[in-house]
């Protein structure tokens, strides 16, 4: 009984291990370096967004100063 269980579990583990290897990931994108393009695009958007928010922040600060002067 025990032996049988052992065989089944080893079989199961080897199966799941082979399944692990076959999981499809974007490996090609990584190997030919195109993933860096994706990162660059996202970074550009992020930086643009932050510059925009920063400029709004500055404008509001200026408005606040103007109001406190009045």
């Amino acid at each position: 009984m025990n032996k049988y269980l052992l065989i089944v579990t080893t079989l199961f583990f080897s199966l799941s291990a082979s399944a692990q290897d076959k999981v499809e990931m974007a490996d090609l994108m990584r190997s030919n370096g195109k993933i860096y393009t994706v990162v660059a695009v996202c970074l550009t958007i992020l930086i643009g967004l932050f510059i925009y928010v920063f400029s709004i922040d500055r404008k509001i600060t200026k408005l606040e100063k103007e109001q406190s002067v009045k």
Partner: peptide, 15 residues
Amino acid sequence: LVYTIVAGFLLPVPR
């Protein structure tokens, strides 16, 4: 957030 994007896309994740 810069770190998130760079590391999030480039570092390995579990398959």
